Computed example of a mutant assay.
Amino acid sequence: MRFLHPDGTTVHLGYCSNVHQAEDLKGVIAQLAAHAEPVRERLGVDRLGIGLWLARDVVTELTADEGALDTLKAELGARGLETVTLNAFPYAGFHREVVKNDVYEPDWADEARLEYTLDCARVLAALLPDDADRGSVSTLPLAWRDPWPRVSAEDARHALDRLTTGLAALEAWTGRRIRVGFEPEPGCVVETAAQAVRELGGLDPDRLGVCLDACHLAVQFEHPAAALRRLEDAGLPVVKLQASCAVEAEHPADPAARAALQRLAEPRFLHQTRTPTANGVLGVDDLPDALDGDLPDTGPWRVRFHAPLHTEPEPPLRTTTGQLDHVLAGLLGGPSADCDHIEVETYTWSVLPEPPADLVGGIAAELAWVRDRLTGLGLKEDPS
């Protein structure tokens, strides 16, 4: 879906396909028919954005075979879908039985990460609608925090220089600008806006910036307005917003809250958990660690469990949709649009205590939730 901000900017809204299990081109095309097109029809719109997740093997096929790329583009067009952003955070295996820390490999000290990201940018340049101003690719925030020796940090910085050069060359060749956004995430080298400024400051803002995940921001107990101001002051653009929310337990010592949290402690994905203290924010790397007593339960817990936007979890748990509202208002509620790509990224449907029977309906309801927020901020849906 597209929206017009009062300043004239076109703002793109879609959902991320990493919710679907597909790691070959045939599977990616099948998910467009089985899920994305029905979501568009359920919303009653002529055009729907989809932020594609393309695993390494798919990207390799698309860059090696122009016919395969043409086939994917034709399938998108035939189904009323468009792509202005790719999620290049997971490299492969995102729907294995156990993912956990493997999702951070390869990191930005590894040549494979640079090559994959540039290949994603090449694919996106070919998929972009003719009238789209630019594309975006999101990626991990350099690496998991440990180990991260100085030599790895230096290798990563050199890789970012080469990434900038590669993106500039791609624009010169295709006429399409692709920006890469690094996604701060709890437990990584870049967790917060302050760390993003420290690690990514001084990079070319026309090519590189931040992918802001509202769930991650909430888990770190960052105030949205302060975080956005910090990024703006440092000249780090928000190239994409992932519209997401975390799970919060206001009183984690409450037996009902602990029972509900226990049902979220599933084995596939990592669910970093944080609580505020007098000296800052204290955290553990996974929800089971918190439940085992490694995190104080005297204050609220926030859990990096991407919860559906339009509904509440099992009481007494709640979500951080209020935080997401503040992020949307901070980016799009002012006189200018400070972000033009929004991606709903609830990839956890399959690991909910009660997975939905109607996934298409759930995704459509999330997109409708964001649509209502955007129109409430003064944006107008663009039917063209």
Rank of each mutant, 00 (worst) to 15 (best):
Gly175Tyr: 10
Ile178His: 12
Val180Tyr: 05
Phe182Arg: 04
Phe182Tyr: 13
Cys188Met: 15
Cys188Arg: 09
Val189Ile: 12
Val189Asp: 01
Glu191Pro: 04
Glu191Asp: 13
Thr192Arg: 14
Ala193Gln: 06
Ala193Phe: 02
Ala194His: 10
Gln195Met: 10
Val197His: 06
Arg198Phe: 04
Glu199Ala: 10
Gly201Asp: 04
Gly201Val: 14
Gly201Phe: 13
Leu203Ile: 10
Leu203His: 13
Asp204Lys: 12
Asp206Lys: 05
Asp206Glu: 15
Asp206Thr: 13
Leu212Asn: 04
Ala214Phe: 01
Ala214Val: 11
Ala218Gly: 14
Val219Asp: 11
Glu222Ser: 04
His223Lys: 10
Ala226Arg: 07
Arg229Ile: 05
Glu232Phe: 00
Ala234Asn: 07
Gly235His: 06
Leu236Gly: 07
Val238His: 04
Leu241Cys: 00
Ala243Tyr: 08
Ser244Met: 08
Ala246Ile: 06
Ala249Leu: 06
His251Asp: 14
Pro252Trp: 03
Pro255Leu: 00
Ala257Gly: 05
Ala257Pro: 02
Arg258Ala: 14
Gln262Ser: 15
Pro267Asn: 11
Arg268Leu: 05
Arg268Phe: 11
Phe269Lys: 03
Phe269Gly: 00
Gln272Lys: 01
Arg274Leu: 08
Thr275Pro: 04
Thr277Glu: 15
Ala278Tyr: 08
Asn279Ala: 13
Asn279Cys: 04
Val281Pro: 03
Gly283Cys: 07
